[in-house]
C-alpha cells in the first residue's frame, strides 16, 4: 500500500487497515494528531509499559527514602563519596539525548529520512557517553574500596543505577534500531507508532534518571 508520507499520512486512506486499540470500544488508533481527543504518544499499549516501569521505579525510590529514615547519618556520610559533578554530567547527557530523540521522532513523522537517523545517532552517542561515565564512576568507587555491601546506601546506589543502566542499554539498542529503520520511508502508520513508542521509552529512561540523580546525589 502506498503512503504519501509527507502530505498527510496522519489521515490514512480508508482502505488502510488500521490497528485496533486496546480500548473496549474498539476505537481505532490512527495517527491523526488533529483528532478532537488528541493524539496518544506512541499508542495506547505502550503506556502499559511506561506507567508500569515508572510505578515500579517509584516503589524503589520510596524504599530508598524509607530505608534512609532509619539511618540518616549513614546515608549522608555515604552520599559524600559520590561525585555530584559526574551525576550532573550524566543528567545533562541524558537530557541532551532526549532532545535529539524528540527531534528525531519529529523528523521521522515528517518522513525526513536523512535527519531522523542522524538525530537518533546523536542521541545514541550521548547514551554511550552516559554508559562510559557510569563505568568510570563505578571504577572510581571500587578503587576507594566501596562495594555494594559497604552501606545500605551503596546497596541502593548500585542496585538502582545498575538497573537503570540496563534500561539505558536496552534503550540504546532501540535507538540504534530506530536510526536504521528511519533511514528509509516507513511502510505503515504502525511503524511510526513504534518509533514514537521507542522514543517515549527513551524519554522514560531519561526521566527515571532525573529522579535517581535527585535521590542519590542531592537529597539531604
Amino acid at each position: 500500500m502506498a503512503f504519501a508520507i509527507r502530505s498527510g499520512w496522519h489521515r490514512p486512506a480508508p482502505d488502510v487497515d488500521i490497528e485496533r486499540s486496546i480500548l473496549p470500544s474498539g476505537d481505532s488508533l490512527s495517527l491523526r494528531r488533529d483528532s478532537p481527543g488528541g493524539h496518544i504518544p506512541g499508542e495506547a499499549g505502550v503506556w502499559i509499559l511506561l506507567f508500569g516501569e515508572m510505578t515500579f521505579f517509584a516503589l524503589l525510590f520510596a524504599s530508598f527514602l524509607l530505608y534512609r529514615t532509619s539511618d540518616v547519618a549513614g546515608f549522608t556520610a555515604s552520599q559524600a563519596h559520590l561525585s555530584k559533578a559526574v551525576g550532573l554530567t550524566n543528567t545533562l547527557l541524558l537530557l541532551t539525548s532526549s532532545l535529539f530523540v524528540a527531534k528525531a521522532v519529529g523528523a521521522a513523522s515528517r518522513g525526513d529520512t536523512s535527519s531522523a537517523p542522524r538525530l537518533f545517532r546523536l542521541g545514541l552517542a550521548c547514551a554511550i557517553g552516559f554508559i562510559l561515565l557510569k563505568g568510570f564512576e563505578y571504577h572510581e568507587l571500587f578503587d576507594r574500596g566501596i562495594a555494594i555491601d559497604s552501606h545500605v546506601f551503596f546497596s541502593f546506589y548500585f542496585g538502582l543505577t545498575v538497573l537503570h543502566l540496563g534500561h539505558v542499554v536496552i534503550g540504546s539498542i532501540l535507538l540504534g534500531a530506530m536510526s536504521v529503520a528511519t533511514g528509509k520511508m516507513l511502510a505503515k502508520p504502525s511503524h511510526l507508532a513504534l518509533i514514537e513508542s521507542g522514543g517515549c521509552f527513551w524519554h522514560m529512561v531519561d526521566l527515571l534518571w532525573i529522579v535517581i540523580f535527585a535521590l542519590l546525589y542531592l537529597v539531604e
Binding site: R20, S21, G45, I48, L49, G52, G166, H167
Partner: peptide, 21 residues
C-alpha cells in the same frame, strides 16, 4: 487486525515490559 488476533499490540507492549522487568 488486533481485534481478531491472539497477539494484539498491547500484548506486545505488556510482553516488552515483562522482558525489561
Amino acid at each position: 487486525p488486533d481485534s481478531q488476533s491472539a497477539f494484539p499490540r498491547w500484548l506486545g507492549y505488556l510482553t516488552a515490559w515483562q522482558l525489561v522487568q
